[in-house]
Design a protein around this nucleic acid. Structure first.
Lengths: 229, 229
DNA sequence: TTTTCTTTGATTTTCGAAATTTTGGGCGTA
DNA sequence: TACGCCCAAAATTTCGAAAATCAAAGAAAA
């Protein structure tokens, strides 16, 4: 029975990302110990490792919780995704070769196929898991040739927290036609190797998750102070 | 005897950041257990938490190590710092008020004071710890008004790993005059609320840690393919 | 000599219980 | 009723040892 710890870790991560636990729910060690038939320390260890990647909140002497959901958090995660994905995608354009292009095209094809099925059936729910993974694959491939493992790891961490925050499939489904168009636009920008266009596309695609706009750029006025805000 | 765990965590973090353990050194649980007079599980837990913030590498079944040093790693950390600090600083310019300006000025003053002392004594070593902390304080204040806790937390994580990688105080000292000038330039850009200038200043300040330039922007040529590389 | 297998010692992982700390309720007092 | 205090239950943290796994050295085979 190898790597029991790793199995529990993966399973817990899946349960957390799919939102099985409510937001802010306390993760009781005893309960999980029974779920996995292991000791309390093992559970504790796994939860620590999950807090490593932001999927679990840890507070000294008061245990572990599934993170709270808030507009702030969603906002910050989106902002970070925009920052990392635009940078990663532009670097990929600079550094990636035909091999990267082909992998991105493949990922888009798979995603596109699922999106078409969803649109024709009119129901996202049964394909939600499939679609979710395909979208993640597409976005990860987008930045895959950026040349920085650190950037990619950081992005995964943010992406999974982002995914965890999305509750209702319905909300998401409302934007499905836009989604399809935007993914296509991103692919096109990549194949055209147009960085400025890429920035715009990624921004447009992600900014939909913002309930209020990101702060606009300010320009110094006569006094050298900000004129915005 | 409250919060023993937290104390061990802080102490270990300090030891790691100051480079007490060599790069890639195995962190033996037994040794640390004796250092802190605690049990193996406590050590294990602390090491897990330190791997949370990238100060320790963890590999299943083969324990914990102080991270290896490599040009790649230094490069990636620098790149990430540039990305996060330029974004954070520009957002602070947009969102921060006079209160932020004054805190940044204060942090700069403290740092500047130490730097002057270093330059007049001609020896960085005795003030290294002090200077190190003052520089961190300055850089953290720079992005402090950015409005995103996530961005700030991510920055700390990157910054500490970056600090851990810097070995020789000598190498650093070679650039001391530049450092002083650059910190001043960053402060000026902040007070002028000039975002474009800020980007340039932060870039110049950090890019010195790169042994080779970051990939330059590519422009689509007639075939829509990259012309750089 | 080189390769592969096996044994042994060291390290990591897991366990269940004891010690510590927090949480929540009940009680008395203002 | 509101407030503070104390106690009991529940949860978290720490412990030391047992179980599982890995790594190095030596023996056997090619």
């Amino acid at each position: 029975m190898a790597a029991q710890d790793a199995d529990i870790f993966d399973d817990m991560r899946h349960r957390l990302i799919t939102g099985e636990f409510g937001y802010g729910t306390k993760l009781r060690a005893e309960k999980l110990r029974q779920d996995y038939n292991c000791s309390a320390s093992t559970v504790r260890e796994v939860l620590f490792r999950l807090s490593t990647v932001g999927l679990v909140d840890f507070q000294e002497q008061r245990g572990f919780r599934s993170p709270y959901q808030s507009v702030e958090r969603q906002h910050e995660l989106t902002h970070m995704r925009i920052l990392l994905e635009t940078e990663g995608a532009c670097l990929s354009i600079r550094l990636g070769g035909v091999e990267w292009e082909s992998r991105l095209t493949a990922a888009h094809h798979k995603l596109s196929h699922i999106e078409t099925r969803v649109r024709s059936s009119g129901d996202l729910i049964p394909l939600l898991g499939l679609w979710s993974r395909a979208e993640q694959e597409f976005h990860e491939t987008l930045i895959d040739a950026c040349g920085s493992g650190l950037l990619k790891r950081t992005h995964v961490v943010i992406y999974e927290q982002f995914r965890q925050q999305l509750v209702s499939a319905e909300t998401n489904y409302g934007y499905f036609p836009e989604n399809i168009r935007e993914h296509q636009a991103i692919l096109d920008a990549a194949l055209q190797r147009n960085e400025d266009l890429m920035r715009v596309c990624v921004n447009d695609h992600l900014a939909r998750n913002l309930t209020r706009p990101l702060p606009r750029k300010s320009y110094p006025d006569a006094f050298g102070k900000s004129s915005a805000i």
